[in-house]
Design a protein around this nucleic acid. Sequence first.
DNA 1: TGACACACGTTATAGCATAACGCAATTGAT
DNA 2: ATCAATTGCGTTATGCTATAACGTGTGTCA
Lengths: 134, 134
Amino acid sequence: MIAPALTKNQSLVFDVLNRSDAPMSAYTILDRLRDQGFRAPLQVYRALDKLLEFGLIHRLESLNAFVACSHAQSDCCSKGHGTVAFAICESCGHVSEFHDHAVDHRLGDWAKQKGFKPAKTTIEIRGLCSACAA
Amino acid sequence: MIAPALTKNQSLVFDVLNRSDAPMSAYTILDRLRDQGFRAPLQVYRALDKLLEFGLIHRLESLNAFVACSHAQSDCCSKGHGTVAFAICESCGHVSEFHDHAVDHRLGDWAKQKGFKPAKTTIEIRGLCSACAA
DNA sequence: TGACACACGTTATAGCATAACGCAATTGAT
DNA sequence: ATCAATTGCGTTATGCTATAACGTGTGTCA
Ligand SMILES: [Zn+2]
Ligand SMILES: [Zn+2]
Ligand SMILES: [Zn+2]
Ligand SMILES: [Zn+2]
């Protein structure tokens, strides 16, 4: 999915997420955008859906929250946006997004061996970041 | 966490999950147990919390649903209940729970290298099982 | 006996997500 | 130019997921 120019609502939502240093729920985003004319959850969810489709943001399933993509361009097997993993600090909220080739392949091998056809893979590690664990 | 004898409510909830061949939401479990006297979500959630604590069930974060543990006893590094992964069929709902030593260690290595202290790791592969993909 | 822990039941509330309707702007044929 | 299809947008209403707060009963252990 190649990203066309963002609409006004999509830009507003993306900017909010991009400036945040922690994941945000749809309703928190909504509150942050009331001043820009947002009134209803759907305005946020529709923008989030598109941003997910464009690969500009990610949904953290274990938090019901969203983060801007910080996928390093240098990642190896970037045909599109390979499987990524997230390390989520439960103290400060910081999220590290990373790609691990070995993990990706290993899970892929398991799937192939079982005849399972993966569509989307979620990997989320909850814990304490180095700063908070110290 | 060693599991003591289950209370009545815990047993009822566990049995429902154990008999199901697909993940169930808390509210679906509630509906299934109305005849046994369940009236409110908390009765289910409290039982689920304990069952999770005992390691008898798992929560699937990407579905907001729960499954009975089918952790094979043969799994290698079973100090307690190591990190497991789930392959979830989006067509028939079947869930395969498995442990992959290599994946577990690989993520652990990443964490160690970054100084991140993992508390709980979620790995969920959504897709089509072999039967449904055919 | 009293203090505590724990399971339980109930009511109310909070938090996350989508259905369904209608309108406006864009695009791309015909 | 005009029609049809697509897409985005705004609004209202609703549904699904989860927890707060309060009180009751029961068993354990000084
Ligand atoms: Zn990314
Ligand atoms: Zn932290
Ligand atoms: Zn298990
Ligand atoms: Zn299937």
